[in-house]
Amino acid sequence: MTIHKAAAIGGGVIGAGWVARLVLNGIDVSIYDPDPEASRKVGEVMKGARRAYKKMLPTGLPKEGRISYAKTIAEAVGGADFIQESVPERLDVKHKVLAEIDAHAPKDALVGSSTSGIKPTDMQPAMKRPERLVVGHPFNPVYLLPLVEIVGGEKTSKKFIERAREAYASIGMKPVVIRKEIEAFVGDRLLEAAWREALWLVKDGITTVEELDDIMRYSFGLRWAQMGMFQVYRIAGGEAGMRHFMAQFGPALKWPWTKLMDVPEFNDELVDLIAKQSDEQAGDLSIRDLEKIRDDNLVAIMDVLSRTNKGKGWGAGALHKDYVKQLSRLAAKGSNAKAEPTKTATPGKPKKKQKV
């Protein structure tokens, strides 16, 4: 599926990130967000995204798609073939918004939800055409991080799962279809586990916010940036690989190390402790300053990864390499160019043909 016109319902951090990725791929986007500050907030995200993309492609970016602001959901989704909903995480709000999208969008339009935890089956009762709803869960910043988790509900058709895969791939993303529907999907469930343990470690005075972040970014965070958990542990098993690692460290799973099934009381005292330490960690750096540092680091990491593996790239770097080439082609084609699917493959494995 090639996206010709998109609609973004919700222009917060995630919604604006979707707008930036789409627009910088030359796709027109109509936005609906009742927030009177929506235009300014989207503009700030666009400014950061343009800055990051210029670092990715210093020779010149594609002509941007047009951004327009609609007064109603009906106006925003009219004529759109791709719609991304990014409204607050409340099921009643999702139902209301999805019902309006469903009533006014073209009948074959793909509808993706950016929800970070609600199952699509729970959202589908609001729609007369539930077969076209998928969860398209991204990670912030959406315009740079390529992963999108695709989750279908009980009434989602295989046709729209495949269309979603093609649509997200066409704007340089790495779609992963989650095999079974589950709350919070995969990425956020892993993050939630780490977040719970981190809160305990800070609350109990074992470490501080800054020290914990340093422990992550100076060690396994660097490993995770280019290899996932299982591949890292396979190497840790030595020549015998994963079986040896499992045999050696498997018994530790029974030790009472973590508090994953418990959570510290979420009260003002805990919030003040975390917020105070976070303020001290940030120092004079504003949120915008931190966003720039984050984006610069992400572009640099992906650029380095794009040059490894004998020049073929590795992991997110392999996809980044292809995405930069795609943006270069769009820039060369000129104002009428639209994004086409990016062909990617897992390093070390033969490329497979995309299903049509």
Rank of each mutant, 00 (worst) to 15 (best):
T2F: 06
H4K: 14
K5F: 09
A8F: 00
A8C: 11
I9V: 13
G17Y: 07
V19T: 09
L22T: 04
V23M: 03
V23Y: 00
L24F: 10
D28I: 07
S30A: 15
P34V: 03
E37A: 14
E37Q: 14
K41Q: 15
A49I: 02
R51H: 14
Y53A: 15
K55D: 13
L57P: 05
S68P: 04
A70L: 09
A74P: 06
G78Y: 02
G79I: 02
A80R: 06
Q84I: 11
E85W: 00
S86L: 02
S86P: 07
P88C: 08
L91A: 11
V93G: 01
K94T: 08
K94W: 09
H95C: 08
L98D: 12
A99S: 08
I101Q: 00
V111L: 09
G112L: 15
I118L: 15
K119G: 00
P120T: 10
Q124C: 08
P125L: 05
A126M: 12
P130M: 07
P130Q: 10
R132Q: 03
R132T: 02
V135K: 01
G136T: 13
G136Y: 01
H137I: 12
F139I: 13
Y143H: 13
L145C: 11
L145V: 15
P146I: 04
E149G: 12
S157N: 09
R163D: 15
A164Y: 06
S170F: 07
S170D: 08
M173A: 10
V176I: 14
V176C: 12
V177N: 11
I178Y: 06
E183G: 04
E192C: 13
E192V: 11
A193V: 10
A193N: 08
A194V: 15
E197H: 06
A198I: 05
I206R: 09
I206N: 07
Y218F: 13
W224R: 12
Q226D: 01
M227F: 13
G228A: 03
F230S: 12
V232H: 02
V232N: 14
G238N: 07
G238K: 01
G241F: 09
H244T: 07
M246N: 05
A247Y: 05
Q248M: 12
P251H: 12
P251D: 14
A252Y: 05
L253F: 13
L253V: 12
T258C: 04
D262M: 13
P264D: 10
E265G: 02
F266T: 09
D268L: 03
V271N: 07
L273A: 01
K276D: 13
K276Q: 11
D279P: 04
Q281V: 00
A282I: 07
A282Q: 11
E291G: 00
I293N: 03
D296Q: 13
M302T: 01
D303M: 00
L305V: 02
L305Q: 06
S306E: 05
S306A: 12
R307V: 01
R307F: 02
T308E: 14
G311Y: 13
G313Y: 10
W314K: 00
D322F: 00
K325I: 05
K325R: 15
R329V: 12
L330G: 09
A332Y: 04
S335P: 00
N336I: 04
A337Q: 07
A337G: 12
P341W: 08
T342Q: 01
K343N: 08
A345T: 00
A345N: 04
K351V: 09
K352Y: 09
Q354R: 15
K355C: 01
